[in-house]
Design a protein around this nucleic acid. Structure first.
Lengths: 346, 346
DNA sequence: GTCACACTTGTGACCGTTCACAAGTGCTGC
DNA sequence: GCAGCACTTGTGAACGGTCACAAGTGTGAC
């Protein structure tokens, strides 16, 4: 056979067709697993494809089908453990479902950054969007840019019916309840950044639980998730307030807090109890090992993809149940001296 | 004007042309910033594009130009701080350069996982590849699949001329030197997974420095980067060996080690000194604050993109200088009791 | 034998963009 | 007045797939 392959471009279905002695449409059918193809034909075509290392051209396919099989992820702080872990899970789940993932990070939370990132994703013709940086402003921009791809987020807001995988409020209530059960009465909340929906939810959970226990409500401090801020906040707290326990909205902030408290000569948990949130892998090796609320970030990511792809395909699926976080009691919390209380074990 | 837009498909360059009263080619020229376009024409076309929210179809463009403007990232452990931070930097840098990024995570390090991940990326028609999971096996698979896109990795290997951003060997030597300067003579290295090139480089640096100081060489322990393993290794070490210092190949492992040592009643750094590697943001808030080797993961990611895009564009650029890590001395290292030594300050 | 029908295969058009080439303008210089 | 040229614009074909439709097989029923 003198038929040979073009050397200046990748082989196409027409090349495969020629070598296999069939029409290009037959090759297309093999590619798409069309049912009515003679087994021998399929085998021959498949063989040729392997021989010449044929790879379908996604651009061509995309052009005609108008499906990119790509989902976008809009993410902030994705170097942090939680978001990073979720992103990995999203990629794995999407890949398993035959979808590609494109990520845009938010370098800042101003509207320009957000719309640039979204524009970048839209250029990719994404079919769905996971908002993993649930900043309130993102949704405004989404609406203003009249972006009409289906999307899911990690927290419910009044206006959006989109996904609610992890019940942040419940987690925050567990953490707070745990401290109350240990006899603490003056509890401070060190919250996350104000514009994060998750931060808001955790704060709300805290306030609800304090309320229902009819305790004194101390005004929360709003931080930025980092250990650095936790350290700073710890120093400030010691200067100005009376308290016996702190519920931090992230493990990192809890770590910084403990550092500040220890620098001031306080013993954890004897003098102050600290609860974190997330249960990052390091948390159990902190000193003292950190009591915290465990979130299954991987499961959250998987769930997000599942719901999103359902929407993309136009399926009517039941909203998934909320993923309940879990209280993990370790060494950073203890009873208030002189108070006998019932400790809730996880 | 009765010309109206099709409602079942997105507006195309021809729609824009019709509304602006020019040919589709003129619109294309506006899109590609062709120099010879009358300013008034350009303005008119641009206006129409905005009015009807025109977005170029990347698939069509890709099909004809044969450029995807997409780079791939093959990544392992990308929920860890270091890789995650680098990935974020890669995305930002690529986006700034007008490139899209596609990531494939390696769920495991067997050949099947690797080739599946690579296949996924190749389907996307990536123009370049960043290997952020520098496992030795990856390169074998790359060769065997006859993948001919340019790629960069984070570590040099004998066979590949590709990128060397961070000098892991030098970093490891600094860490080891620091311990030697403090008077330690029996130093153990807790290394990373054997098949990671980075782990190998850090171990090599350790051994070189021990050698040049003519100290007793203790066989390294090979772990998996995690705090969990560090904790386990710490327990094992205490059972079987004599040493006064440990150099761990990751901050996480260092954290676990310290936990194990403290559980055994040892004081850090009085009884044992520990050095980590990476300087994750939490490290300065560990107890004691961790002496470690700082790597600029963001810079490494940016540098990787810069070099890669240079290769993609066929430019002959000078190999970038190695990014030198930096010793950060904190509380987890101290002098060996009874020995007066010179402490190297960062 | 032939008709219906399922199974299998082939042909032309199209998706939205860029490329190669051609052609229309208007200005300058002689 | 017209050749020459730069500047600006337009026309046809292609990229590599899929879709809609048509047409060629072989089998069984009558």
């Amino acid at each position: 056979m003198t038929t040979q392959l073009p050397k200046d471009r990748a082989p196409s279905i027409r090349d495969v067709a020629r070598l296999a002695g069939v029409s290009y449409q037959t090759v297309s059918r093999v590619l798409n697993n069309h049912p009515s193809i003679r087994e021998s034909t399929r085998a021959r075509v498949t063989q040729v494809m392997e021989d010449i290392q044929y790879r379908p051209n996604r651009a061509a396919r995309m052009l005609v089908t108008r499906h990119s099989r790509t989902i976008g992820v809009l993410s902030a702080s994705s170097a942090d453990y939680g978001p990073a872990r979720s992103v990995v899970a999203i990629e794995d789940a999407a890949r398993a479902a035959g979808y590609y993932v494109n990520i845009a990070n938010l370098p800042a939370s101003d509207q320009t950054s957000i719309s640039e990132a979204l524009e970048h994703l839209m250029e990719q013709a994404i079919e769905g969007l996971v908002v993993i940086a649930p900043q309130v402003r993102v949704f405004d921009v989404l609406e203003r840019m009249s972006i009409d791809v289906p999307y899911v987020s990690f927290q419910p807001t009044g206006r959006f019916e989109h996904l609610v995988p992890a019940d942040q409020v419940a987690g925050a209530r567990m953490a707070t309840r745990h401290l109350i059960d240990l006899g603490h009465r003056e509890i401070i909340h060190l919250g996350g950044p104000q514009d994060w929906i998750e931060a808001e939810a955790r704060m709300r959970g805290f306030l609800e639980e304090i309320d229902s226990a009819e305790l004194n409500t101390n005004p929360p401090i709003l931080g930025d998730w980092t250990a650095e801020f936790g350290y700073y906040a710890g120093q400030e707290l010691l200067r100005s307030r009376d308290f016996t326990a702190v519920f931090a909205a992230s493990d990192h902030m809890a770590l910084g807090l403990i550092h500040a408290f220890r620098d001031a000569g306080l013993d954890i948990p004897h003098d102050v109890s600290v609860v974190g949130f997330d249960d990052i892998p390091d948390a159990r090796h902190f000193w003292p090992p950190l009591t915290t609320i465990r979130q299954d970030f991987a499961e959250i990511g998987r769930s997000a993809v599942e719901v999103l792809l359902g929407k993309v395909r136009g399926e009517v699926i039941a909203e998934p149940g909320q993923i309940l976080p879990e209280l993990v009691v370790r060494g950073s919390t203890g009873r208030v001296p002189g108070v006998t209380a019932t400790v809730t074990q996880a």
